[in-house]
Simulated scan of single mutants.
Amino acid sequence: MTRRTTALSAAVALAAALALTGCSSDGGKPELKVSGAYMPQPVMDMAGGFLTIENTGDTADRLTSVTSPLSDDVTMHETKNQKMQQVKAFDIPANGELKLARGGNHLMFMELKEKPKQGGKVSVQLHFEKADPITVELPVEAPNHNPQQH
């Protein structure tokens, strides 16, 4: 009888563990897609970067860093009360989006190694808390380019 009880207890424990694993709050991986990426042609030795990251997954994520061959110092900034301040990460909600746009949250490329020209492209790699990195080519647009005004 003890052997049957032990086997039954083990089966119940295994079923409970599997149920908990399946019902974890993680819900799977974020499903990230980047669109609308661009960089206005820089007029000084720094530049801004803008894009939208859409998350169609049921799990939230965070953009934790950005790297680029253009600059060893790529930072993320938010704009609050018309003041720009550096942040360590941006949240990307589940079934939502992170929008980096002029006048709002954005990327800053400091101490450029070269000045990209309109018509060129700048490669960046986006690093996330959960999702795999995504490499994006930012088309270089006119210095005054603003797709929100179109």
Rank of each mutant, 00 (worst) to 15 (best):
A13T: 08
M108R: 05
A131R: 01
K99G: 02
R62P: 01
C23L: 15
M108L: 13
T21H: 15
T64W: 08
G22Q: 12
V66F: 13
M44L: 13
F109A: 01
S65D: 06
G27H: 08
T21N: 15
D45L: 10
V43L: 15
L98E: 03
S25C: 02
P139H: 03
E129L: 11
L107M: 08
C23V: 04
N81T: 00
A11T: 14
A11R: 08
A16Q: 02
G22H: 11
S9F: 05
G36I: 03
Q148S: 12
M110A: 11
K33V: 03
V122P: 09
K80E: 10
E137S: 12
P143M: 07
T75K: 11
M44D: 11
G27T: 04
L70A: 11
L18T: 10
D45P: 01
L138P: 08
T5I: 12
T5V: 08
K29E: 05
T67R: 04
G28S: 02
K130W: 04
N81F: 02
V122Y: 12
D73K: 07
Q149A: 13
S68R: 06
D45Q: 12
K80R: 11
L51Q: 08
M84S: 15
V34L: 07
T67G: 01
G36W: 10
R102P: 15
K121N: 14
V124I: 14
Q82I: 00
N81E: 11
L20W: 15
